[in-house]
C-alpha cells in the first residue's frame, strides 16, 4: 500500500479532515483520487450511522429487559443444553429413555384414536383466505398428494407452503420447510418427511412473484399428523 492510499483511508474514515496539510497536498497532486475518496465518505457515514443506531438499540434493550425475559432466555438455554446435538454431553441413556417414552406415548395415542377421526385440525378459524385443505384426511404420507381448494392463481402468483414443528403446547415452532407450488397440490417424498416430527403445522399462502413474494392471502394454520 502506498502512502497515498493510507492517507485516503484515513480521510474516508474521518481521521484526517479537509483542512489537514497531508490532504491539502494530496488534493493538489491527485484531485481525482481525493474526489473518489470523498464519494466513499458517504458510505463511511452510513456505516457510522448504522453502528450508532445499533448501539443505541442495544442500550435501550438492556434497560428494558425484564425478569420474564431472563426466564425465557434461561429456559431456552436449558432446552438447548439438553439437546443431544449440544456440546454438553447429555447422557445417551437419557436420550434413549426419552425416545422409548415418546414411542410408547405415540403408540398409546394412536391406539386410543377414534376410528375415522380427522388427522387435520384447523388451529385458527378466524383467518379466512378461501384456502381450504382438501386432503389428506389421513396422515401426511410420502407419495400421497396434499391438496387444497383455493381461487385460481394468476400467472404471476404461486402458492407458498410453510411447515413448522408443533411444540408440546400445540404452537407452531421451528420452521421445517417452505416451498412454492404452481398448482393446488404438493406430494411429499420420503426424504421430505424423514426428519419431521409427528405433528406439524401448515400455512398456505397465495404470493405474488413480482413484488418479491408478497403474501396476498394466508390460509388458517392446519395441524397435520405425519405418517411414519
Amino acid at each position: 500500500m502506498t502512502r497515498d492510499d493510507e492517507l485516503l483511508a484515513s480521510y474516508v474514515a474521518g481521521e484526517l479532515g479537509d483542512d489537514s496539510a497531508e490532504i491539502r497536498e494530496l488534493r493538489a497532486r491527485r484531485p481525482e483520487a481525493l474526489a473518489a475518496a470523498a464519494d466513499l465518505s458517504t458510505v463511511a457515514r452510513e456505516l457510522d450511522a448504522g453502528g450508532a443506531l445499533e448501539r443505541r438499540l442495544i442500550v435501550a434493550a438492556r434497560a428494558q429487559a425484564s425478569a420474564s425475559d431472563r426466564e425465557r432466555v434461561a429456559s431456552a438455554f436449558e432446552r438447548s443444553s439438553r439437546a443431544p446435538s449440544s456440546r454438553f454431553g447429555v447422557s445417551r441413556w437419557l436420550v434413549a429413555a426419552a425416545l422409548v417414552l415418546s414411542a410408547a406415548g405415540a403408540a398409546l395415542y394412536f391406539q386410543r384414536r377414534a376410528p375415522g377421526e380427522r388427522e387435520v385440525q384447523v388451529l385458527n378459524r378466524d383467518r379466512d383466505a378461501q384456502i381450504v385443505l382438501r386432503t389428506p384426511q389421513a396422515p401426511l404420507t410420502a407419495g400421497v398428494a396434499l391438496e387444497w381448494n383455493a381461487p385460481a392463481l394468476a400467472a404471476s402468483e404461486r402458492f407458498s407452503l410453510e411447515f413448522r414443528a408443533l411444540d408440546a403446547g400445540g404452537s407452531p415452532g421451528k420452521l421445517l420447510r417452505r416451498l412454492r407450488c404452481t398448482s393446488a397440490s404438493w406430494t411429499p417424498s420420503t426424504a421430505d418427511l424423514s426428519d419431521w416430527p409427528e405433528q406439524v403445522s401448515l400455512v398456505i399462502a397465495r404470493v405474488e412473484l413480482e413484488s418479491g413474494g408478497r403474501e396476498l392471502a394466508l390460509s388458517q394454520p392446519f395441524s397435520l399428523r405425519v405418517a411414519r
Binding site: L57, I58, A60, A61, R62, Q64, A65, S66, D69, R70, R72, V73, A74, F77, S81, F88
Partner: peptide, 23 residues
C-alpha cells in the same frame, strides 16, 4: 456448564427479547 458462567451469560443475553421489541 460452569453454573456461575451460565448465570452470567443468561443475565447478559436477557436483553435479547427486549432487542426484538425495541427493533
Amino acid at each position: 456448564r460452569e453454573p456461575r458462567a451460565v448465570d452470567e451469560l443468561v443475565a447478559r443475553l436477557a436483553c435479547t427479547p427486549a432487542m426484538l421489541r425495541v427493533l
